[in-house]
Design a protein around this nucleic acid. Structure first.
Lengths: 144, 144
DNA sequence: TTAATAAAGGATAAATTTATCCGAATTAAA
DNA sequence: TTTAATTCGGATAAATTTATCCTTTATTAA
């Protein structure tokens, strides 16, 4: 469904959100450990999240990644997915056709529209804050 | 969503179904042309479909691929997807966790279940016959 | 001002997916 | 029985994704 990079990206963003709720800035090192992801690769993905203004980064000692309280609400999963995987997951044809639309649909077009809009709606309506609070309460997990 | 191999596989299977409805057996060459896919790669994928008893193949002159009338109804997309991409698309965790279930869910678990079961239901209920008939009537397309 | 810490960025490697090529096996038709 | 058409299977190549390493840049604190 999502690329590995995107999975790591979402998990990292949720972890940063969780820690930012406590006012803690976190390093790549800590993030990779806590979400069980490869360190250097995670660093690359965090660069993308930073460039896309999804999280903030601070260099130097005591530096690390954080996210503003407001962004926790405004950043939806769709923004992260789009930044890392692009929007092909909503936009593209399920069977890989370049031209596939209501006028010239692939055989799966109509059935796929449902599934995809379901997914899109879910991603567009789920905020980082929402995901982090489940973690905070100990209801959900980011590792293993 | 699906791998390229799987996209080609579904398109190929639908095309074979369409032609088998007319009693025509089709070669890899024709299939690749008609679904606009790379020939040799398509041949590999057709081997998988054959091994999984999704389509039948016949060697030699006048040989090619075909599908039995009954299989057109009983083979659902889920079978093709499973044969090529495996079942991670239904079974796996959306965030890539190995252990993710109702007991120890990832933050996206509940929301993902909806999307995924939507997809699974669609794939499990859509037969090759159903997809081919749209093509036959000229309502849907397999190229471009 | 210096040393240490952390992200940024570039180069490269490993793994996987996508794709091609070619000889072997099978089979129908000439 | 030979020839040609076709799938099958193995080897390999190209492209993309995943992952690592190392140097540079920024910044804090001693």
């Amino acid at each position: 469904m999502f690329s590995k990079a995107c999975e790591y990206g979402i998990r990292a963003a949720v972890y940063i959100t969780l820690q930012s709720l406590d006012g803690r800035r976190v390093s790549v090192n800590e993030i990779a450990e806590e979400i069980d992801s490869p360190m250097a690769f995670t660093a690359k993905i965090l660069q993308q999240l930073t460039k896309n203004n999804i999280v903030d980064s601070v260099k130097g000692p005591t530096g690390g990644f954080e996210i503003e309280r407001e962004a926790m609400d405004t950043v939806k999963l769709s923004k992260i997915v789009k930044a890392i995987d692009g929007d092909k997951i909503y936009v593209g044809c399920g069977l890989g056709l370049k031209e596939c639309n209501a006028d010239k649909p692939c055989p799966l077009h109509d059935k796929f529209i449902d599934v995809r809009s379901n997914l899109r709606t879910m991603l567009q309506s789920t905020s980082l804050y929402e995901l982090a609070t489940g973690l905070e309460v100990g209801l959900t997990y980011l590792k293993r």
